[in-house]
Write a protein that binds this DNA or RNA. Structure first.
Lengths: 148, 148
DNA sequence: AACATACATTTGTATATACAATTATTGTAG
DNA sequence: CTACAATAATTGTATATACAAATGTATGTT
C-alpha cells in the first residue's frame, strides 16, 4: 500500500485530504480481497452481510427495515438482494402476521450451512488483511475508527 | 460511528474480522459524505479522481492505462468515465501520434476551473470527516494505513 | 513479407446500485 | 367511519460497474 507513491503528484496535500484518500485506497484494496474470497461461493459482500445479520437474529426473523438499517444499502436494493438469496435457497420470506406491511426474513438451514463455509474463508482473509499489524496496533486502529 | 452497536450480535468476533468490518463501515460513511459533496457538481467520485490525476500531470497528457493504474476502477469503466467527462467538456481525448494504440487525455481549462470549485467543497468535507482527530492521531492513522 | 503475439482501448452484456414513484397496509384526526 | 398521513416494501428507470470478448495497432520471429 504505497500511497505516497500513488498520490505523489499532489505535493502540497493537507493531512485531512491525504487521510481520506488513503482511507479510500485501503478500503478498495480490502474490498477486492473480500470480493475474491466470496466469489467461489457466488454471493456478493452485501448478500454475505444479510446472511450474517440473519444468523445474528438467532432464529428470530428480521424485517427489511431492520436489515436495511444494519446494512449500508438502500432500501430498494434490499428487496432485490433478498430476492437473490431466496433463489439460492439461503433465506425465506414471509409476511408478518400482526402487521402485514412488514416482511419477515429468516435464514434457512441451507443458508446457515453455506454461511459457515463462507465464514471460514472470510476469517482467513480477515487475518491475512491485517497480517502486518500487531494486536496493539489493531486495537488502537479500532479506537481511531470510532472517531470517524 | 457506533460500530460496537451495529455489530453487537456477533459477540465472539475476533479482532481481525472486527477491524475489517469496522473499516468497511467507516469507508461507507465517508463515501456517502463525498458523494453528497460532489453531487452539486454532477460528477462521481471516480470522475473527480480522473480530473485530479489529469491536473497532477501538469499539462502532460495521461493515457488510459496510466489513469487506470492510479485509480481503482476497471479498464472498461475508464473509457466510459472519460466519455462522461468529455461530454461535460472537462477533458479532451486525442490519439497518440507516436503510438496510435494509445489515447492521450488532457484536462481542459473548463475542467480545471470546475475542479477548483470541487476542491474547495471537498477540502471542507475532508476536514469535517476528520474533525474528531488530533494532528498526531491523523498522522498515526496514516502510518497504520500503510500497513494494509 | 507473413504470421503470431502482445499491447491499448473499446464494446457487449449481465448484474448492481441510486433515486423516485408506486402499492399495500396501518394509524389517527375530525 | 371516512379521509388523510405514515409506514413498509416493491417496482421502474437510469446510471454504474464487472467481466469477457472484440477491435485496432505495434512488435518480434522465421
Amino acid at each position: 500500500m504505497n500511497v505516497e507513491e500513488i498520490i505523489k503528484t499532489d505535493k502540497k496535500m493537507e493531512l485531512p485530504s491525504k487521510t481520506v484518500i488513503h482511507l479510500m485506497l485501503v478500503s478498495n484494496k480490502v474490498n477486492e480481497t473480500i470480493n475474491a474470497t466470496l466469489k467461489p461461493f457466488d454471493v456478493s459482500i452485501q448478500q454475505f452481510n444479510v446472511l450474517r445479520i440473519l444468523r445474528g437474529q438467532c432464529g428470530k426473523p428480521a424485517n427489511l427495515k431492520t436489515l436495511n438499517e444494519r446494512m449500508v444499502t438502500k432500501m430498494s436494493n434490499t428487496t432485490r438482494l433478498v430476492d437473490k438469496l431466496i433463489i439460492k435457497g439461503y433465506v425465506k420470506r414471509e409476511t408478518c402476521e400482526t402487521n402485514r406491511r412488514k416482511i419477515e426474513i429468516y435464514i434457512t438451514p441451507k443458508g446457515e450451512k453455506a454461511l459457515s463455509s463462507m465464514d471460514i474463508a472470510m476469517h482467513k482473509n480477515d487475518k491475512h488483511i491485517v497480517q502486518n499489524f500487531s494486536k496493539e496496533e489493531l486495537e488502537y486502529l479500532n479506537v481511531l475508527f470510532n472517531k470517524f
